[in-house]
Design a protein around this nucleic acid. Structure first.
Length: 483
RNA sequence: CGGGAUGUAGCGCAGCCUGGUUAGCGCACCUGACUGGGGGUCAGGGGGUCGCCGGUUCGAAUCCGGCCAUCCCGACCA
């Protein structure tokens, strides 16, 4: 096969982003070996490379939770059906998505068990036992767990029947304190998303129809993906006293009265892995921000038939140097051609590639290629680790800036409904518009444009009238088509 | 859950309409040689219950029915 034809054949294994974003995403997930389909509908296998990305995301969040006084625990996968039914809105919200265990040990169970879709019910039940006095508060517990929500339409990472996440559940003395916690976590989510995953997000409050079933109010961070659709990247709920009342979680207050606690819950999931893919990837594959890259640097030795003798020792030396500087590095000493390796690691999104061959060794230098800009530069071996670290920081920053610029360029403020519709049909993204607060208007807008309110960043009336009706606006809402 | 499409080797596909020996092609894989700074060349080789179950037929990848899975578009959700 001629060279060009061959290159094209390779490229067809990844659908171009502009041609079919959805297919592009699936191609990346599969070809970069992030995940694979399993024999169970809607359930994916997270492969080692994808899991490594998740672990880095997980570690970043976990460190922040601990810094802010939270501790980890683990609650059961199974929840007696009756517990789930204690909070009316909560059951209603989750009922269609719940999986049940009806038989076990060869017998039908007396009470069906629910496979947790989320853990408010079981955790609330335990909190009721553990909390007596205001001195027991606040309780700040997080758990890393799997949950199951029966989904009709699934996509790897973005929506799967079983997924991994973190769910924080806290109990407080006052409403103010619970609200402070809810917002503090929202800030924390935004910080990790932006600084670690290089994914710019919009923080704001969800509309009534989009809030968590059983919550007083829900806040979210929303990110804009490469196709102009928004991804809900994390949610933080102020539960008020709803669950405390349903599960009878009470404490004796400082003034001797008995009161219900004020709760919060909040979570981020493996969906974030999909978010990273769709925020940064290009037609050559994945682009990973250094802070979530399992390998931040790949070293590719180059040389003649004797490269194992002439080049490899130097490559190993460099690997050692970078490794002891705390950089995640791998050395590709497979017996493949260099060009093949380049493409392979680009597909996998490794931020920096170090090429080392005879010419470099002569100059006591290496060639470093960036995944984000594809620039190559020669760097002296002396002090390489420091320069590499600087480059990694620069890639991290560049990816964030690029994503933020994209987001800003795809965010428009509109004042008429005509404009609104035009934007949604033309170049989708966020549309900022005043909204009257009516669920009806919200539903109509969704009907007519497919766009939903992602969230409302600022509280307080913006002035002016609703984009769809003539009522006074209660908030400025960020609309978008969503995942 | 409705509408549409697809399922043949690890990946991408042809064959199916019009049923007929051992089911093909490219890439990938294995062996060897030459190679090596952007997906190499040559030679030889391995790999398939044609998604599953049933039916029609002398005979099914091919026709019919059911089921399952995946993808796309809609209704519901981290």
């Amino acid at each position: 096969m001629p060279k060009q034809e061959k290159a094209d054949a390779f490229v067809t294994e990844i659908t171009p982003r502009s041609e079919d974003f959805s297919r592009w995403y699936l191609d990346i997930v599969r070809r970069a070996e992030l995940a694979d389909y399993s024999p169970v509908k809607g359930c994916m296998v997270i492969r080692p490379y994808g899991y490594a990305v998740w672990e880095l995301i997980q570690q970043a969040f976990d460190a922040e939770f601990k810094k802010t006084g939270h501790v980890n625990a683990y609650f059961p996968l199974f929840i007696p059906e009756s517990l789930l039914h204690k909070e009316a809105e909560h059951v209603e919200g989750f009922a269609p998505q719940v999986a049940y265990v009806t038989h076990a040990g060869g017998e039908e169970l007396e009470e069906k068990l629910v496979v947790r879709p989320t853990s408010e019910a079981i955790i609330g039940t335990m909190y009721a036992k553990w909390i007596q006095s205001w001195r027991d508060l606040p309780i700040l517990i997080n758990q890393w767990a799997n949950v199951v929500r029966w989904e009709k339409v699934t996509r790897p990472f973005l929506r799967t029947t079983e997924f991994l996440w973190q769910e924080g559940h806290t109990a407080h003395e006052t409403h103010e304190e619970a609200e402070r916690e809810t917002l503090m976590i929202l800030d924390l989510y935004a910080k990790v998303a932006e600084t670690v995953m290089a994914m710019p997000v919009v923080k704001g409050m969800k509309s009534e129809s989009e809030k968590f079933a059983g919550a007083l109010r829900t806040y979210s961070i929303e990110a804009l993906m490469g196709d102009g659709r928004a991804l809900q990247a994390g949610t933080s709920h102020n539960l008020g006293q709803n669950f405390a009342k349903a599960f009878d979680i009470t404490f004796q207050a400082r003034d001797k009265s008995v009161q219900h606690v004020w709760g919060t819950s909040w979570g981020v999931s493996t969906r974030l892995v999909g978010g990273v893919v769709m925020t940064h990837g290009d037609d050559s594959g994945l682009i990973l921000p250094p802070r979530v890259a399992p390998y931040q640097v790949v070293i590719v030795p180059i040389g003649r038939d004797n490269w194992r003798e002439t080049v490899l020792p130097k490559a190993q030396e460099i690997q050692q140097q970078l490794r002891s500087a705390g950089i995640r590095v791998t050395l590709d000493e497979r017996d493949e051609r260099p060009g093949w390796k380049f493409s392979e690691w680009e597909l996998r999104g490794v931020p920096l590639r170090v090429e080392i061959g005879p010419k470099d060794i002569e100059k006591s230098a290496v060639l470093v290629a960036r995944r984000d800009t594809r620039e190559k530069q020669s760097l002296a071996m002396d002090g390489l680790a420091t320069r590499i670290q600087q480059l990694l920081d620069d890639v991290q920053r560049t990816l964030f800036d690029r994503a933020r610029t994209f987001r800003d360029e795809h965010t428009q403020r509109v004042s008429t409904y005509e404009e609104f519709k035009q934007v949604m049909e033309g170049r989708p993204g966020f549309v900022i518009a005043p909204w009257c607060g009516s669920t009806d208007c919200e539903a109509q807008i969704k009907n007519e444009t497919q766009a939903t309110i992602r969230n409302m960043p600022r509280s307080g009336a913006p002035g002016g009238t609703c984009i769809r009706c003539d009522q006074g606006a209660i908030a400025e809402a960020w609309f978008a088509k969503s995942y």
